[in-house]
C-alpha cells in the first residue's frame, strides 16, 4: 500500500528526515516511536503534504501513485488521512458543514455522486457512535473551545467519515486522559479492516496497549534504527531509548 524509499526532508536549512525506508501493507498497524525531535511528526507531515517541509530525496509510492507529486487534497482523495497532533481551531466553520464539503469534493474526485442532506444525516449518525461524539459538538465552530479529548474524538470522527485507506495518527494520545484515550483507541479499532492500514506515531507505549501494532519502528535522528514486533514497544517502555542509541555506537 505504502512504500517509502530513502525519504529525505528538511525544514529551512535543517535536515530532519535522513533516509527513511518503510513498507506498509493493507491490514497492518505500524507504530513509529522515538525520542523527542527524532522526526516522527515530520514524517507524518511530509506524508500528508504539509508545505513547510522540503523533500530533498527519495520516493513515496501510495497505491501505485507518486504521493509526493500530489497536493494535500489529492492525497486525501486517494485515501490518506492525518489525525493532527494539534487540531486547528477554525472559527465560523462547523465540523458538519466542513465534512459535507470534504466528502463531496472527494466523491467528485473519485467520479462518485454527491451525497444529499438525508444521506449525510444517516452517515454522520452512524459514525458519531464510533467515538461517542455529540451532535451539538459537531454543529459548533471546528475545535473552537473544545477540550483536548473532544478535539481528538473529532479527529477520529472525521476519519470514520472519510474512511481512509491509510490513517496516520500523529501523537493522538498527547493531552488525553485515560478515558478519552480508550474512547479514541476503540474508535480506531472499529475502523480497522483487512483493506486499510494505520500508522500510529507516538512517544509513549500506553496508546499501544489499546491499538496493538503489528510492527514497531524506532526513529532516531531522522532514520529508522530498529524495527520489531509489538514486544519492542514494551521493551522501550521498560528500558527507554538509550540502549538502542548506545547499540548504534553513539
Amino acid at each position: 500500500m505504502l512504500s517509502i524509499k530513502n525519504l529525505q526532508a528538511r525544514i529551512g536549512e535543517k535536515e530532519i528526515l535522513k533516509g527513511i525506508n518503510l513498507e506498509i501493507k493493507a491490514g497492518e498497524v505500524h507504530a513509529i516511536m522515538g525520542p523527542n525531535g527524532s522526526g516522527k511528526s515530520t514524517l507524518a507531515s511530509v506524508l500528508a503534504g504539509r508545505e513547510d517541509y522540503e523533500v530533498t530525496g527519495g520516493s513515496v509510492d501510495f497505491l501505485g501513485k507518486d504521493l509526493l507529486d500530489l497536493a494535500p487534497e489529492e492525497r486525501a482523495a486517494e485515501g490518506l488521512f492525518l489525525a493532527f497532533q494539534y487540531p486547528v481551531e477554525i472559527p465560523g466553520v462547523s465540523t458538519t458543514n466542513f465534512m459535507k464539503s470534504a466528502v463531496n469534493e472527494i466523491r467528485k474526485y473519485r467520479g462518485e455522486e454527491a451525497l444529499d442532506a438525508v444521506q449525510f444525516l444517516k452517515m454522520f449518525k452512524e459514525k458519531m457512535s464510533y467515538v461517542n461524539i455529540d451532535q451539538s459538538l459537531l454543529s459548533r465552530a471546528l475545535n473552537e473551545g473544545f477540550s483536548g479529548g473532544e478535539k481528538k474524538r473529532n479527529e477520529i470522527f472525521q476519519m470514520a467519515v472519510l474512511e481512509p485507506k491509510l490513517a496516520i495518527l500523529d501523537e493522538t494520545d498527547s493531552g488525553l486522559d485515560i478515558d478519552a484515550l480508550r474512547i479514541v483507541a476503540e474508535g480506531v479499532n472499529k475502523l480497522k479492516s483487512p483493506d486499510n492500514a494505520t500508522i500510529v506515531v507516538t512517544h509513549y507505549q500506553r496508546l499501544l496497549d489499546y491499538i496493538v501494532p503489528d510492527f514497531v519502528h524506532v526513529l532516531y535522528k531522522g532514520k529508522i534504527v530498529k524495527s520489531g514486533g509489538k514486544e519492542l514497544a514494551l521493551e522501550l517502555e521498560e528500558r527507554g531509548y538509550d540502549w538502542i542509541i548506545s547499540a548504534l555506537g553513539e
Partner: peptide, 24 residues
Amino acid sequence: EEALFYLRSRGISLANARTLLLLA
C-alpha cells in the same frame, strides 16, 4: 496557513478552503 492545510488534508481544494475560511 495551518487552517488551510487542515482543510486541504481533509480533501478540500485550496480554492474552496480559502473561500470557506473567508466566508467564515
